[in-house]
Amino acid sequence: MTYWVSTALLILGIYIAISIALYYLQDYMLFKPEKLPKDFQFDYENQETKEYNLETRDGAVINGLRFFPKGESKGVVLYLKGNSKSIKGWGKFAVDFTRHGYNVLMVDYRGFGKSTGKRSQKAIKRDLQLVYNKIKEQTTEDRIILYGRSLGSGFAAKLASLNNPRMLILDAPYYSLTKVTARYAPFMPLSLLLKYPLPTYKWLKYVKCPIHIIHGTHDKLIPYKTSVKLAQIQPKLTKLHSVIGGGHKNLNNFESYHNMLDDILNSQSKTLDLETTSINVIHSSKKAKKKA
């Protein structure tokens, strides 16, 4: 009896130790920041940029970079990036929006690039709302597009749920970060341990603008079926765009992705007259009557 009790206590002790380690080390596992010196100079070929530093109420500094289109601006895309590197590397994707006539604003989360401050889910959400408010001082909300890529998709959904942007675009989004991490640690109480649950599915319920979801069908990190589930939350507002064969990090290498982005950014919303469609036509399921 003593042997089984000792074994059970040992297993319990290991389980608790792993749980504690996950709690305190999750920032290092989730975020892969690239830090930049304060005097670092951003430089992109054929791109006009302007750097910004925004001070938060708790004394942190959020560093951002604005990319300008050639010619008259159609609006602003607030691009919320993934969990790695800094806007130094992510800046090369701004061309996908400036070429369509949009300003692009990218910001580094706390601890990334030149941004400072203690990182938490609450702090990042507060920082991004501050950034959004600053954009609203320069333009109207019907000219603001929120684009969230991977980790940034959850924060973009939260921002859209609290504001009224022109549209929300989610690139390889997750249902919740708790669901993603549960695939790798199925026996851990992640709902209690995770500091960044990021429940995208909850926030999408309160979004009032058009929602576009882009996802690769061969995404190994965040499965394509995740976006199918997210698209069902608000089906009347949501359109799912599938990049056939696309993975998690290579959608920009597919021509179909750029065609989708072109359609999304340049399409004009219009009301469909359903009375002129076959929406009410029901296929007959009656079996042929047997001859008497």
Rank of each mutant, 00 (worst) to 15 (best):
M1L: 03
Y3A: 03
T7W: 07
T7M: 09
T7L: 15
L9V: 15
I11D: 06
L12I: 10
G13R: 13
A17E: 01
I18H: 01
S19A: 13
L22F: 10
M29Q: 02
K38F: 01
D39E: 15
Y44C: 08
E48Q: 12
N53R: 12
N53P: 00
S86D: 11
S86E: 11
K88V: 06
H100I: 05
G101I: 14
V104F: 14
Y109H: 12
Y109D: 14
Y109S: 05
G113P: 10
G117M: 14
Q121P: 01
Q121T: 06
K134L: 09
E137K: 12
T140A: 04
D142E: 15
I144K: 01
I145A: 08
Y147D: 07
L151P: 08
L151M: 15
P165W: 03
M167A: 02
L168R: 07
I169F: 12
L170F: 08
Y175Q: 01
S176T: 15
L177G: 02
L177R: 02
L177A: 06
T178F: 02
W203Y: 09
C209F: 10
C209Y: 07
C209L: 04
K220Q: 11
K225C: 00
I233N: 07
S242D: 08
I244W: 02
N250C: 10
F254W: 12
Y257R: 07
L274T: 14
T276L: 14
T277H: 09
I282Q: 13
S284M: 02
S285I: 15
